[in-house]
């Protein structure tokens, strides 16, 4: 019984130290980087319209589209498809997605379709697509917005994130930021 008392006391000391004080310290340090500590919210007219790193669902022809999502970009409940590479039903879904993508982007016919635009991400909230996947959508968006394709290609260029020296990650385009930039283009 005396020994149990030691353990019980140690238990509560640790509850206070690592269960309370540690997260509070990090919370306090967050005040020195409020934007980051809240996940980089993006505000338009003082309202949060999204978060830099949380992907959103885009379906209209005038926006660039992100990757398919197992949870339909529901940021309250992340998830992947967890389909195996050999699952026949899954492979049919992918084939269908490719057909749909080509129907929506006829200019992509005959070009190489990168697999990221027809496969679902792990989180279901992937904010990025590959540069190639963005470029294949230029004609569609240009037609819907009546903007020259060249302007959109420059916009993709300026919204491409490149990890230093090409190491530790891939070149990506942030779809939400690209579409926000697109909306600003229209207003000018």
């Amino acid at each position: 019984m005396k020994l149990f008392l030691i353990d019980l006391k140690l238990h509560f000391i640790m509850v206070v130290l690592v269960g309370c004080l540690y997260p509070l310290l990090i919370l306090g340090l967050g005040y020195f980087a409020r934007d980051a500590a809240n996940g980089f919210p993006i505000r338009e007219n003082n309202k949060i319209v999204g978060y830099k790193n949380i992907g959103q669902k885009f379906t209209s022809t005038g926006y660039f589209w992100g990757r398919p999502s197992a949870v339909d970009y529901n940021a309250a409940s992340s998830g992947g498809t967890n389909k195996s590479t050999t699952n026949a039903d899954y492979l049919q879904v992918i084939a269908q997605r490719k057909v749909d993508f080509l129907l929506a982007n006829p200019s992509a016919v005959g070009k190489e379709i990168p697999s990221d635009i027809v496969t679902a991400s792990g989180s279901g909230l992937d904010p990025h697509i590959s540069v190639a996947a963005a470029l294949l959508q230029v004609q569609r968006v240009a037609a819907a917005r009546e903007i020259a394709a060249g302007v959109l290609e420059t916009l993709i260029q300026s919204n491409t994130e490149r990890p230093p020296a090409g190491l530790f990650g891939a070149e990506t385009v942030n779809v939400l930021e690209l579409n926000l930039a697109l909306d600003k283009l229209k207003n000018h």
């Binding site: 990757r67 992947g80 990168p114 990221d116 992937d126 990025h128 590959s130 994130e161 891939a170």
Partner: peptide
């Protein structure tokens, strides 16, 4: 598949 098998993976 320039990035390999992308099902269940993040682009970044």
């Amino acid at each position: 598949q320039p990035q390999g098998n992308m099902e269940g993976k993040e682009t970044r």
